[in-house]
Design a protein around this nucleic acid. Sequence first.
RNA 1: GCUGCUGUAGCUCAGAGGUAGAGCACUCCCUUGGUAAGGGAGAGGUCGAGAGUUCAAUUCUCUCCAGCAGCACCA
Length: 652
Amino acid sequence: MALDSKSVSLTFPDGNSRSYAAGVTPAQVAADISTSLAKKAISASVNGQHWDLQWPIEQDAEIAIHTMKDEAQANELIRHDFAHVMARAVQEIWPDTKVTIGPVIENGWYYDFDRAEPFTPEDLGLIEKKMKEIINKRDPVTTEIWDRERAIAFYKANNEPYKVELVEAIPGDEPVRMYWHGHWQDLCRGPHLQHTGQLPGDAFKLMSIAGAYWRGDSNRPMLQRIYGVAFTGKEKLKAYLHMLEEAAKRDHRKLGREMDLFHMQEEAPGQIFWHPNGWTIYTTLQDYMRRAQHRGGYVEVNTPQVVDRKLWERSGHWDKYQENMFIVEVDEEHAREKAVNALKPMNCPCHVEIFKQGLKSYRDLPLRMAEFGSCARYEPSGALHGIMRVRGFAQDDAHIFATEDQIGDECARFIGFLTDVYKDLGFDSFKVKFSDRPEQRAGSDEVWDKAEEALLTATRAAGVEPELNPGEGAFYGPKLEFVLTDAIGRDWQCGTFQVDFVLPERLDATYIGADGAKHRPVMLHRACLGSFERFIGILIEEHAGKLPFWLAPRQVVVASITSEADDYVLEVVETLKAAGVRAEADIRNEKINYKVREHSVGKVPVILAVGHREVEERTVSVRRLGEKQTRVQSLEDVTKELARAATPPDLL
RNA sequence: GCUGCUGUAGCUCAGAGGUAGAGCACUCCCUUGGUAAGGGAGAGGUCGAGAGUUCAAUUCUCUCCAGCAGCACCA
């Protein structure tokens, strides 16, 4: 206990307080309460800050002692300690491995290593075994504060160059905190457990190995990253692994094949061959968006695919994105040089060119110009991912030409528009991120100040408090990102709303103001679904292939139970089709069990079975996907019901 | 693009230095069956592409292409 005669008053969650000598540690406080708590304690919260049991408390504070039952703190701690224990295990097995960083992430942690030999999947088993040995040793975790010079000298002596760089990067002249798990040492902010034996040795698993750049910089060395997951108990680990298995079944690439929606092949990497079923989803969604946009006050346009580089040079894209464009060279007759064009990677410059035709008045603003623009981008091979990240896609793109003081209204209006659309498509909630100025950008700081301020204010005014995403804006302006997640929780930007003062300037777009003089419009880039391709991928995973009836590519299969019902089956199909339902007949020579199974696997939402009884009574037996029991209904009722279900939500 | 892994029938996968197998799907026959796989027969592969080693390569080596995971990128 500290010799300091000063005392501190600690208040517990139940409101009681006790007095201790200043410098008391939560470990001592726990021991003072009970020996069992001293054993079970893993960390504390001191004035709301997650606090190591060994850190001294120098001032009056509110304190709570945590045990494994405090899920949030326990997860944070064990994942962090697992990272250290894993690094220790790796260095014990392969002593020439250099350590770098190992943060906690969702469900687990990773640690980046520099080692000449690649880790193999078999190595993961070895490391896990070694980790369990370390846990069984119940080595104490200790911590000290060192001054920087000492830490730097220590890491230099130990040949840990990455750690040297990390210490040097800690701002100011602050001393640094060092941790030991037994003999093994790491630079760390903490907090940590009391000893390695507090780790649940049966509730972790090393998942995968992957490359990762040192400090996230592609110019620096590539390290080897090992990912692990850990939970407070074995059952939770099991549940998590089970969830991953279930998620794999929702993978849009797998469902795309099983439901015969699309395929991709080597000759066109990153581009989609849409099959009839998939294209039905696509066009149904596009029709819906077209109606929504008309209602939302947009005009629709269409612009060229192949555009001369001159326009891209003027817009600034040639400079920044040349390597990511598909270039089309053409030998023009009598021309001295080949004409160089690019497949359009986006629609904005072409929309500005439409805006510039004729004189625009302030009375024309805001002018909302939409296009389902087909774009081609030469994305890096490693970025491609099913239909979510592709090289050929169509956006539900639009550019709003507006005056500066219309930004707020347009932003709010768009957020409302997007919210309605997402709700219709089954997404009641989504993340909104605000990305501000990137390091490389066009336009002056004053313009950026103005744009960021306008966008953030407008977003908040619309009742949305976005997550901040610093430095991630577009080169011409700040943006809002509307983010949805896939089956295994990866984030995908779908909608976007961007403020752009730069492009109208570069392409010299103007309108005539009320004062009779020329003014520069602001351009608001926005997409609601983002790309149809990505959004459909998300839709498939969100619904596990069981799309809402109106979007389902195959809505109804009418299946005969005996061949004597075939004629009636065909009649039912024709009736449904005439009512606007996507219906097909299954009069194959197969048993009804077989047909039911096949169409259930194919995610057809409704199967109508027809046998002798139904033919005689002019009814059908209705079976809905996922339900076991069936219901007999008259053909007339079913047709009415299904026709209504097949109607897009905006037309009901 | 980078690191690692993978590429065999439409799909899911087995296999070995001596030019290939299963299940499902497909075709035909029998079966007319009442709500998640009825029975039989048949057809189907230049083992991702190219080069090298070898008497012999789909198998070993190299290069390329594509896919997967992660990183970087994402106008």
